[in-house]
Design a binder for these strands. Structure first.
Lengths: 241, 241
DNA sequence: AAGTGGTCTAGACCACTTC
DNA sequence: AAGTGGTCTAGACCACTTC
C-alpha cells in the first residue's frame, strides 16, 4: 500500500476518536493539526473531508470540527451497506454464502453499448456470462455479465462458477474497487417468473453496473435482475462535496 | 447563491457534457481546462472531483478524464440522482419543477421505528405529511414523511404544500445535507394504482430515507413510492474512501 | 519523451462564529 | 478582535499511460 499523508492522518484521527482522546467531542483546529502533524493545512483538510464524508465528524465554519455524536451512539446507522461491490460480498453478511448456477457462458462480439461502456473497439470480444444466484436453494438473482477477454483472458467455466472478482484479485493482484450503479424497478418477465419463482404482479429490482479496477479500467458490465424481496440498496448521501 | 469558482466550472462542464460537446467521451486535460477557464488547476480538480463523485465522469491516471457512458445512456429518463437530496432538486431536470398535492397533514405520536430513526422518546410528536408529487399532471410519487415537531415547530399547511427543505433553510439557515437512503422494488398496491395510474403488474420503486441536518440532527424520515418508470437511482461507489 | 491525473505545499484572502 | 473552516492560487514533484 502507498503511504499517503492525508490517509495516515485520517487513520490516526479515526483511532484517536475511537479512543475518546478528544474532549467535548471537539477536534483541534486545522492549523494546530497541521502544525502538530507537520503537514500542510490542505492535507489536514483532505483527511478531515474524508472523515466528514464517512459521517464520523462534521465541520462548522467559524466554530470548529466536531465528532458526530450519532456516530458513537448508534454505529449501525453509519455503516455503508451500499459500499460493498460484488454480489458475493454484499449478500454474505448473515454468514451464508450465495451459490451460483451457471446458465450460459460464451464469447461474443461487443455491441455498441458495450463498446462504449467497456472502452472497446468494434469487433472486440467479451465473455457473456449468465448466472443464477441462489440462497439456500432459493434463487434471488439473474445476472448477465460482460467482461472483455482482453482484461481477463483466462476465464474458464470453473472460474465463472465462483466469484469472478475474488478469482481475479487472487490471480492478478488487481482488485475491483469502483462502480457506477443504476438501480430501478421493473415488471417481471417470463424468464423472471421461471427462474426466480415470481408471480406476474411481483416485480424485479434491476441493478445495472459498470465495475472498474483501481486504475479506472472498466472490468465488467453487469445487468442484475433481483427478486424484489432481495434488493435493498442502502446508501449514504452527503451534499457537501 | 454564492459564486464559487469550482461550482461554476462544475455546472458549465455538466452543461457541456449534456450538450454532447465532448468527442470520444473525453474531456480536455486538467491543465487545458485550467487555462481556458482562467483558474487554477486545483479548482478544476475540485470541480472534476465533484462530477466524479456524482458518477458523471471518471478519471484515469495517465490517460485522461472520461464521461461515464451509463450516465448519458440514462439521460432521457428524468431521474433521481444519488447526489441530490430532496425531491424538489432531484427531479427538476429540464428546468421543470414538480408540483405537490397535499393528501394528508397531521400530528401523531412517533411509533417505535420512528423513535429509533429520529432519536425521539416515547410519546414524542411528529408531523405526518402525505403528498403526491406530479410532473406536468403526471403523478410519479407518493411521499409519506415524518418530521419531529421539535425540530420544525412552525410547519403549516401552506409550507408543506411546497418544498419543506427549502422553507426550512430559508427560515432557519440550517440545511439538510446528508441522508441514508434505502432503495427497493415492491408490487404496487391499490393506492398506487389509483394515485400513480399503475397497472397491477407494474411495480413501484420504494425509497426510504432518513435526512439529517448539517450538525447530524435527524430531520425527517420519508417513505417514497415511485412510479417505476421514474425511479432511476444512479450512484457511484468507491471502496477507496 | 510527452502527456495525464494524483499528491502536497505555503500562503492569501474570505465568511462565519464567538468573545 | 480573534478564531475557525472555506475557497483559491501557483507551483513542485510523482505515478501511470501513451507514443
Amino acid at each position: 500500500m502507498v503511504d499517503l499523508v492525508y490517509r495516515n492522518i485520517m487513520t490516526d484521527l479515526k483511532r484517536r476518536i475511537e479512543n475518546n482522546e478528544f474532549k467535548n467531542k471537539r477536534l483541534p483546529d486545522e492549523r494546530s493539526l497541521s502544525e502538530s502533524y507537520g503537514v500542510s493545512r490542505s492535507s489536514v483538510k483532505r483527511a478531515l473531508n474524508v472523515l466528514a464524508n464517512q459521517g464520523i465528524i462534521f465541520k462548522k465554519r467559524g466554530s470548529g470540527t466536531f465528532i458526530n455524536p450519532l456516530y458513537q451512539k448508534n454505529q449501525s446507522i453509519f455503516q455503508y451497506e451500499g459500499s460493498n461491490l460484488g454480489v458475493t460480498d454484499s449478500f454474505k453478511s448473515n454468514g451464508k454464502i450465495p451459490q451460483i448456477k451457471l446458465l450460459d457462458f460464451k464469447v461474443v462480439t461487443a455491441d455498441e453499448d458495450l463498446q462504449t461502456e467497456l472502452f472497446l473497439k468494434p469487433g472486440d470480444f467479451v465473455y457473456q456470462i449468465k448466472r443464477l444466484r441462489t440462497f439456500e436453494d432459493q434463487p434471488f438473482m439473474i445476472e448477465l455479465g460482460y467482461i472483455p477477454i482482453r482484461v481477463a483472458p483466462e476465464l474458464t467455466k470453473e472460474v465463472v462458477e465462483g466469484s469472478i472478482f475474488n478469482y481475479f484479485e487472487d490471480t492478478t493482484g488487481k482488485s475491483v474497487t469502483k462502480s457506477f450503479m443504476s438501480i430501478k424497478a421493473e415488471p417481471s418477465r417470463d424468464e423472471d417468473h421461471e427462474l426466480l419463482g415470481l408471480k406476474p404482479v411481483e416485480p424485479v429490482g434491476v441493478m445495472e453496473g459498470i465495475f472498474f479496477l483501481d486504475d479506472g479500467t472498466p472490468f465488467e458490465v453487469s445487468n442484475m435482475r433481483l427478486h424484489y424481496k432481495y434488493l435493498n440498496y442502502n446508501t449514504f448521501v452527503d451534499l457537501d462535496d
